[in-house]
């Protein structure tokens, strides 16, 4: 019986991974298609990569998207870390329920609603005080607002799983609460903040709907550019772009996974050493 069951699970796992990966593998294969019609194979060629690299629109969109992603990730990590810290370590404070509600709401809010509400708000604000100009600023603000929610959740779960003894020990030894924060809590939070930064960076690079609502004339992010092209059908240069993105992400995830694994092994070794002595 046991054997039959694990065969079933193995089959499901293989099916699941095939389902997840075959479409992506095909994207990559067709990027090397000589033919202009994507699903019909016309021989091997790298011409679409050349088309891609020579396209100034693509470069402009990549650079805008990267700029937004970096600024977004940095602010979202700071704001999200503060929010997570407040929610886990401060106990009750006035407005806590509203605060925690507002923090988690963007996680599940449909993107069309977030996008529409921010756009209407920006237009209203512009009429009132003459700021902000729609484009880089508005997209970045919109991205920070939903990214910080993800960071707050990561920080919250790290803080909740972190024993408070180190912080308490520092306090007992006479460190002021602020000193405890800067010398103990923040260094322990660093891996969580790095994960939050990377997640915010990716979320921002990936967002189409909210950026489409909050963008202004001339500010075309990479997803907006891709979307405007694939709406009209399949395009081999988009396959080339997809291949590059998949390659970069895979390398990134592998490095991150390797670092995590090394850290886990190091911790295990430390524990072992501690147990021996």
């Amino acid at each position: 019986m046991q054997g039959k069951r694990s065969t079933f699970l193995l089959a499901m796992l293989s099916f699941g991974m095939a389902f997840l990966y075959i479409p992506m593998v095909l994207l990559v294969i067709y990027s090397f298609n000589k033919s202009k019609i994507v699903p019909i194979w016309g021989g091997f060629s790298t011409r679409w990569y050349k088309v891609l690299f020579e396209s100034e629109d693509v470069w402009a969109a990549v650079s805008l998207s990267l700029k937004i992603a970096v600024v977004n990730a940095t602010f979202a990590t700071l704001l999200g870390a503060l929010a997570g810290l407040a929610l886990v370590r401060f106990g009750r404070f006035r407005g806590r329920t509203l605060f925690s509600g507002m923090i988690t709401a963007p996680l599940v809010m449909p993107e069309v609603i977030t996008g529409l509400s921010l756009l209407l708000f920006f237009i209203g604000l512009k009429g009132l005080i003459g700021w902000p100009e729609r484009g880089f600023t508005t997209i970045t603000i919109a991205h920070i607002t939903f990214s910080m929610a993800y960071v707050a959740v990561i920080i919250q779960s790290r803080l909740a799983g972190m024993a408070q003894d180190l912080e308490e020990a520092a306090q007992d030894l006479g460190a002021k609460p602020f000193r405890v924060l800067t010398d103990i809590t923040l260094p322990l939070l660093a891996p969580g903040m790095l994960a939050g930064w990377l997640l915010s960076f990716t979320l921002s690079l990936d967002d189409l709907v909210i950026a489409s609502f909050t963008t202004g004339p001339g500010s075309t992010t990479l997803p907006i550019l891709i979307y405007s092209r694939i709406r009209l059908g399949l395009r081999p240069d988009i396959n080339a772009l997809a291949t590059i993105i998949i390659l970069v992400v895979t390398i990134g995830v592998l490095i991150f996974g390797w670092l995590m694994l090394r850290q886990a092994k190091q911790r295990e070794r430390d524990m072992h050493m501690a147990a021996k002595s």
Binding site: L13, M17, L20, Y21, P23, M24, L26, L27, Y30, I37, V38, P39, I40, T202, L205, D206, L208, P223, I226, Y227, I230, G233, L234, I238, N239, L241, A242, I245, I246, V249, T250, G252, V253, G257
Partner: peptide, 28 residues
């Protein structure tokens, strides 16, 4: 396996939808 489940999540959502346009098209 966990890494394999998470990896697509980090690649572009838009391009994963696009991949299915190529699979499901009449000439796909």
């Amino acid at each position: 396996f966990l890494l394999m489940v998470i990896l697509p999540f980090w690649t572009s959502f838009l391009l994963r939808v696009y991949a299915w346009m190529g699979l499901l098209a009449d000439q796909g």
